[in-house]
Amino acid sequence: MSERRRSERRLAWMLCAPAVIAMLIVTGYPIGYAVWLSLQDYDLRFPDDREFVGLSNYADVLTSSIWWGDVWNTTIITVASVSIELVLGMAIALIMHRAIFGRGAVRASVLIPYGIVTVVAAFGWRYAFDPASGFVQNLPLISDTAAPLTERGGSLAVIVLTEVWKTTPFMALLLLAGLALVPDELHEAAKVDGAGPVQRFFRITLPLMKPAILVALLFRTLDAFRVFDTVYIQTAGANGTETVSILGYQVLINRVNLGVGSAVSVLIFLAVILIATFFVRGLGASTARQRGEAA
């Protein structure tokens, strides 16, 4: 290696070091610490009873019906909100991509939900559905006495609605970037080849956007799986809407049981890794196919 390359390399590492160290310290160390805590019986209310208990916290969590119920709730919210967002986001992306006029207005307006503080959005929707103050019950076709946030189905629906409202713009923007990567010429070629608008969308646009769709789905699925703010504000986990993040928070911060709480934290971390691996595999395979490497 030449002296020049060596010094370039040294400079590069010096420039990257602060960011890398910060990321390692603030994520790597605490997650390691969480693993260590999760192996102990450690409740801040009884700090003197702290002892090493091996995997028994995990056994407790994994055999509790609360954990599995929360996993189920989280899955419902994740799947429902991400799939609605995908369809809705695609529609908005198509409007932004193809609209002849008003593109700027659409772009500006979809960025509003993106910019809004999640807690604010959660309050807004909560008040909208509140039987005492909400305008929703004033709308035609909606029962005057409905109180969706007092029962499970309604609460889940409002949570999903809030999540969808807030994050569809992000989805739409990622999909829009994907749409922009499909050359106009291919659409024209398909037109000449005899494909109608629907066929063009399903046979040309969608397959070519697959990597972009997978990236968008990956980010949104991970995000939705960590859902915390909306649930905390709207139900605080009541009415059978507790998610894994809320559970972790309750055990760690409210009940200050650091041992069990850390076990929950580590399990969530593992679940996220699982989801990410799943998507990254799919993504790798699909981009490889696209480039023709697999053929």
Binding site: M23, T27, L37, S245, L252, L258
Partner: peptide, 24 residues
């Protein structure tokens, strides 16, 4: 390595470390 490390941090669930950070 740095890019994938950054990607991993982007996917990191904050709830997994709030307990540790709280304590630390």
């Amino acid at each position: 390595l740095i890019l994938s490390g950054a990607l991993a941090v982007a996917m990191f669930p904050p709830i997994s470390i709030v307990g540790s950070l709280f304590n630390i």
